[in-house]
C-alpha cells in the first residue's frame, strides 16, 4: 500500500490555520467533502465520529504529529488527507506538545486490515525525520504531493 493509494491530493491543506483540535478536524473533513471524497451529507456525522474517537485517547502521538481517524460506513475505501499547521495546534498529544503534521483517515467499518495497513504505511513515513521536516516546509499543495510521491518511492530514506 502506498500513500498515493489513499491520500486524496485535492483535499490536502498546506496551510491549516486553526485554534483547536476540533477546528482542525472540521477543516480537514470539509476539505475532503470539497474534494468529493466523502458524501456532503455525511460531513457532520464523520466529524462527530472523529471527535468521539479523540475522547478515547488523543491521536496526537507525539513529535508534532497527529493521526485522527475513524471508521465510517459512507466510504467504500480507505481515504485520507494531510494538513500542515505551521503555527501548531493544541491536540492533547501524548507528549503534551502542539501538532504540526496531521494525517486524517476514514476507513470502511468492515476493513480493519486496510485500516491497519494505512496506519502502518503512514507510521513508516512519519518515523523519517526528513519526510516530517520537508512536510513542515511545504509552501503549497504541490510541494506536499511531490513529497508523498518521493516517500512512496523511498527517495527520502536515510
Amino acid at each position: 500500500m502506498k500513500l498515493s493509494d489513499f491520500v486524496v491530493p485535492e483535499a490536502i491543506l498546506h496551510d491549516l490555520q486553526v485554534g483547536s483540535k476540533e477546528e482542525a478536524i472540521r477543516a480537514m473533513v470539509a476539505s475532503m467533502k470539497s474534494a468529493g471524497s466523502i458524501p456532503a451529507e455525511e460531513e457532520e456525522s464523520i466529524v462527530n465520529k472523529l471527535l468521539e474517537r479523540e475522547k478515547l485517547g488523543s491521536t496526537g502521538i507525539g513529535n508534532g504529529v497527529a493521526v485522527p481517524h475513524t471508521k465510517h460506513p459512507s466510504v467504500d475505501d480507505l481515504v485520507a488527507t494531510v494538513a500542515i499547521a505551521k503555527e501548531g495546534v493544541e491536540f492533547e498529544s501524548l507528549d503534551g506538545g502542539p501538532v504540526y503534521i496531521l494525517f486524517l483517515l476514514i476507513s470502511p467499518p468492515d476493513r480493519s486490515g486496510d485500516h491497519l495497513r494505512g496506519l502502518e504505511n503512514i507510521s513508516r513515513h512519519l518515523r523519517n525525520q526528513k519526510f516530517c521536516s520537508f512536510l513542515r516546509q511545504a509552501r503549497n499543495r504541490e510541494d506536499i504531493i511531490e513529497l508523498l510521491k518521493e516517500a512512496d518511492n523511498n527517495e527520502l530514506d536515510d
Binding site: I61, G62, L94, S112, G113, L116, R117, L119, E120, S123, R124, L126, R127
Partner: peptide, 12 residues
C-alpha cells in the same frame, strides 16, 4: 515507547 514503531508491527 514509540507508537509509530508499534503500529508498524501491523499485528492483526
Amino acid at each position: 515507547r514509540n507508537i509509530l514503531d508499534l503500529l508498524m508491527l501491523k499485528a492483526e
